[in-house]
């Protein structure tokens, strides 16, 4: 079984005196997808970075029975928290193969899902430098690198940002594959159609607080989002 259960209780992220996220609780079960939607500045990225340990955060974070919130980011990752960062953050001076190898070397065990089976389009470019790939190829590499680390939960921050419509469709396929493989998928998105196609549970954020919790298939979702964006 690939997946684990991510539970976040009363997450709080602050930058100096500015509160980015307040009292956010959520649970992502294995084999499901939860999408955080909201306008720019709603606290979506801060939520993922707080859970991942890249920003200091208050509240409780558990991966199954393991409490993560007192661990540094690197140990959270090794415990099984995969994180595809906004902006890809691939290692540009390393080859594609080296990007995957360095992630696999830190994994607690061999991944049950081979990242190159999930993303076979990377096979022909294994020896290319990551810095020379297109934005879409770098996004695919960022997802593959997270999978190479044998995570049980995968957090993805706007994976479709800046991609062509064709690649957005491909990214949705990959996310569905991850969910169907048993991973718990926590997704930050701007495109509501991604959450809808993945039939994800949706948390709409507004000013760092939970505004709504709905199903991605809920016909009211676009209206709720519009209200959140315009508030």
């Amino acid at each position: 079984m690939n997946g684990g259960r991510l539970k976040v209780d009363a997450l709080r992220v602050r930058y100096g005196g500015v509160t980015a996220v307040e009292d956010l609780s959520l649970t992502v079960e294995p084999g499901t997808c939860l999408a955080l939607l909201g306008a720019n500045g709603a606290g979506k990225t801060s939520t993922l970075r707080g859970i991942g340990g890249l920003e200091s955060a208050g509240g409780g974070i558990w991966l199954d029975d393991l409490r993560l919130d007192n661990l540094p980011a690197s140990r959270r990752a090794r415990a099984g928290l995969g994180h595809v960062l906004e902006g890809r953050h691939v290692f540009k001076s390393l080859s594609v193969a080296e990007n995957l190898r360095v992630a696999a070397a830190r994994a607690a065990h061999k991944p049950e899902l081979d990242p190159l089976d999930l993303l076979p389009e990377l096979r022909p470019m294994l020896q290319r430098l990551a810095g020379g790939l297109s934005g879409g190829q770098q996004q695919m590499l960022a997802i593959a690198r997270a999978v190479a680390g044998a995570p049980r939960v995968i957090m993805l921050d706007e994976p479709t940002n800046g991609l062509s419509p064709k690649l957005v469709g491909r990214t949705i396929e990959i996310l569905a594959d991850l969910r169907d493989a048993g991973f718990a998928v926590l997704l930050v998105e701007q495109r509501v159609e991604v959450a809808q196609k993945l039939e994800a549970d949706v948390v709409v954020l507004r000013h760092g607080h939970v505004a709504h919790r709905v199903r991605g298939t809920d016909p009211e979702l676009p209206d709720l989002l519009q209200a959140a964006y315009l508030s």
Binding site: G52, L54, H83, V90, F91
Partner: peptide, 11 residues
């Protein structure tokens, strides 16, 4: 290359 990217994979 990338501090955040490295920490996110467990380095």
């Amino acid at each position: 290359d990338d501090l955040d990217g490295a920490e996110a994979i467990g380095i």
